[in-house]
Design a binder for these strands. Structure first.
Length: 477
DNA sequence: ATGTAC
């Protein structure tokens, strides 16, 4: 793979062969050298061949190999002439992260950490195939799929302000449950309010360092404050939506009359029956994921109040923000000095809208959108802020986390015979988990250092560092 | 990510 440096944080894959635009990778020099033998750079070049792609196929410093599109990838397609690919969003539709602040300090929570972690682990079902206490008829499920977060709040799982501090207010309007397969609906009926497995987690953390005092104040973050972070998605329902539409598009792709560099890039015109059906189904899965995270936040609030014997006013577990990092969105961006309507595909990438954007809550509009960047279990997570540079360069996008360094298989091998739970306990981090191999697959050394990833997006100017959080207790699937 | 191959 031939790469040309653009500046200290950007590398270009020149437009060659079938590529319609160049590729641009955000990375340090050390990061790019580590990527040279990885197939993910070829995936960036492959995405650049797709019809209607605008400006460049992009990748963030947490890039790694994904299905068709790389994880850590960003691409925008013209709304009228572009394509949509289910692999561009990925299997976990609207996988995302939410962060809640509290009125509690580390000193107040530390003595109760073990029972708190145990009760959260009991209250939030986790693991592959886990089901929750919310059981839905297909009729109720269809309301979840069209209403998202508002459905959960209306049924007592949360407070009104949670909706305001969720990207898109926790609901995509294009959702149409009528396009979902019976199998997708069935898989969604009993999984609401469940964490899932793999990299999904619920984490009690503490604000360890503030980098931008003004923005931190606007976000309501202070040093020593306890936070709750949730990382989860659309569970089996989203998986089934992706699977169903990949199969349909593999059949219809011949209509496009082009040869794809990779069958995993199966796609359809946005303005086609197949394309619109996918976007309607994807919106259902996105709304399901928001309702899912909303219910788990409510469960976390209840569990904190019961375990610590405190009132809502003493807890004040308020949602700072909820971001998606696997999604396609219709957005308007400036391209060559003109407004253009595009479908922005972020796969393992986070929206990072800058100051003044109408789609971010009033409270944050002067500083920019909060961005939540989880790291691995043992190191740190960051809160960042969106910037004008992100609007100019990346369709208002940035990284989504640390990014994998080792494949799951390689991590499992490297961690064989070790107790990652005990290793983390020595660092004062309590971990509760379900899956037999989850801890080794997810151990800290399986991930890049999130601080280095964040250093790149901060250095490149597509996000600004606001605060770093340190993990205290983690619930894993 | 995923009833980790219906």
């Amino acid at each position: 793979m031939h790469l040309e440096p653009l500046d200290p944080y950007r590398w270009q894959i020149p437009k060659t062969g079938q590529m319609r635009v160049p590729g641009i990778i955000y990375s340090s020099e050390a990061g790019i050298n580590a990527l040279l033998r990885d197939g993910s750079l070829q995936q960036v070049a492959n995405v650049a061949t797709l019809p209607g792609i605008v400006t460049a196929a992009m990748a963030m410093p947490d890039i790694h190999l994904g299905y068709g599109f790389p994880i850590g990838g960003v691409a925008a397609f013209d709304w009228d002439t572009g394509v949509i690919s289910p692999g561009g969003v990925g299997y976990d539709i609207n996988c995302g992260v939410r962060l809640a602040t509290t009125a509690l300090t580390e000193d107040e929570v530390r003595p109760h950490l073990e029972p708190l972690a145990n009760r959260l682990f009991q209250a939030v079902p986790s693991g592959v195939g886990s089901t929750g206490s919310v059981r839905l008829s297909v009729r109720d499920l269809k309301q979840v799929l069209t209403q998202g977060s508002a459905w959960a709040v209306a049924r007592g799982f949360g407070q009104d302000s949670d909706i305001e501090y969720t990207e898109e207010n926790g609901c995509l309007a294009q959702a149409d449950p009528g396009v979902l397969s019976d199998r997708a609906l069935e898989r969604g009926r009993n999984q609401l309010g469940t964490l899932g497995s793999g990299n999904h987690f619920l984490e009690i953390g503490v604000v360890e360092e503030i980098f931008d005092a003004h923005t931190a104040r606007v976000f309501g973050l202070v040093p020593g404050q306890v936070t709750v972070m949730l990382h989860s998605g659309s569970r089996g329902l989203g998986y089934q939506v992706c699977d169903d539409h990949l199969a349909a598009m593999k059949k219809s792709v011949a209509k496009l009359g082009l040869t794809l560099p990779d069958r995993q890039l199966a796609c359809a015109m946005i303005q086609s029956e197949e394309g619109q059906a996918y976007l309607s189904a994807m919106a259902c899965a996105a709304n399901y994921a928001w309702a899912n995270r909303q219910i788990m936040l409510h469960t976390a609030r209840q569990t904190f109040m019961e375990t610590l014997s405190i009132s809502p006013n003493s807890l004040r577990m308020n949602l700072l923000y909820d971001v998606c990092h696997n999604i396609a969105k219709k957005e308007t961006h400036q391209v060559d000095g003109k407004n253009q309507t595009v479908c922005v595909v972020r796969k393992g990438a986070t929206r990072a809208f800058g100051p003044g954007h109408p789609d971010i809550p009033d409270r944050f509009r002067a500083v920019g959108q909060p961005i939540l960047t989880p790291g691995d279990m043992g190191r740190a997570s960051y809160v960042l802020c969106g910037t004008d540079t992100a609007m100019d360069q990346t369709f208002g996008s940035t990284c989504h986390g640390a990014g994998r360094l080792l494949s799951r298989k390689a991590a499992k091998k490297a961690g064989k015979g070790r107790s990652i739970q005990q290793e983390l306990a020595k660092k004062g981090i309590v971990v509760k988990y379900t899956g037999r191999f989850t801890m080794t697959e997810e151990m800290p050394e399986a991930y890049k250092d999130v601080s280095e990833v964040v250093g790149v997006v901060h250095g490149a100017g597509i996000s600004r560092m606001v605060a770093r959080l340190r993990p205290m207790a983690v619930v894993k699937g």
